[in-house]
Amino acid sequence: MNHGPLIFLGILFTFASAWCGLVLVPHQQLADLAPNVSEETGQSFPQARPGDAAQGARLYTSLGCVACHTQQVRPEDGGGDIARGWGSRRSVARDYLYDMPLQLGNQRLAPDLANYGERLGTNPPPYLHLYNPRAVTAGSFCSANPFLFTRRATNNTLSPDALRLRKGFEIEVGSELVPTREADQLVAYLRSLRFAVGLPEAPLKTAEETK
């Protein structure tokens, strides 16, 4: 081990092996991955996010929600994600074709959000939670985003989109809090988080299998 050039070559080759294996080959393997078109419904999945949701994704990234929230459902033998109702199937590479940047996350200090839109269903959108999670869930340490809302004067009746703040969180009478455009975008993004669609590589369970 006294020859500089030989050591250099070794340094180069060990690195190059991993570079080919973990950078080059995946790029070749996954480059042609395309949305899946369902034979039954003719619908393609996944779909690119519409403008509002795409803007919301930027906000989600910029605020670093990923520091606490993951967006990945692990397979059934690799954790309790599915049992917990965070998804109806494991997440696979195809689900993320239009996610840029990916917000997979590496810490679960909070519920997984990969299928948050699915879970939300027809419930009212989580504006209040975004404003202050404590106003919804006592004791939550989810970060508050009061800067996504504006205060405006009101004459006694709250406008339809104003936050309905419960006791302990009220603001002074004669004013109300309404979501900004950014808050709408973030909600649009959160609603778009769903992949309860079967794929060839990750089929949804049929009703009998679930039993």
Binding site: G10, I11, T14, F15, S17, A18, W19, G21, L22, P26, Q29, L30, Q72, R74, P75, G78, G79, R90, S91, V92, A93, D95, Y96, L104, N106
Partner: peptide
């Protein structure tokens, strides 16, 4: 040399359970 080789290949272990091809 083992650090050079295995260190270079070790990264994707942190994607376990994630949506990437299993071999990676």
């Amino acid at each position: 040399w083992s650090l050079a080789l295995f260190g270079a290949w070790s990264g994707p272990a942190r994607l376990i359970g994630g949506p990437v091809p299993a071999w990676i």
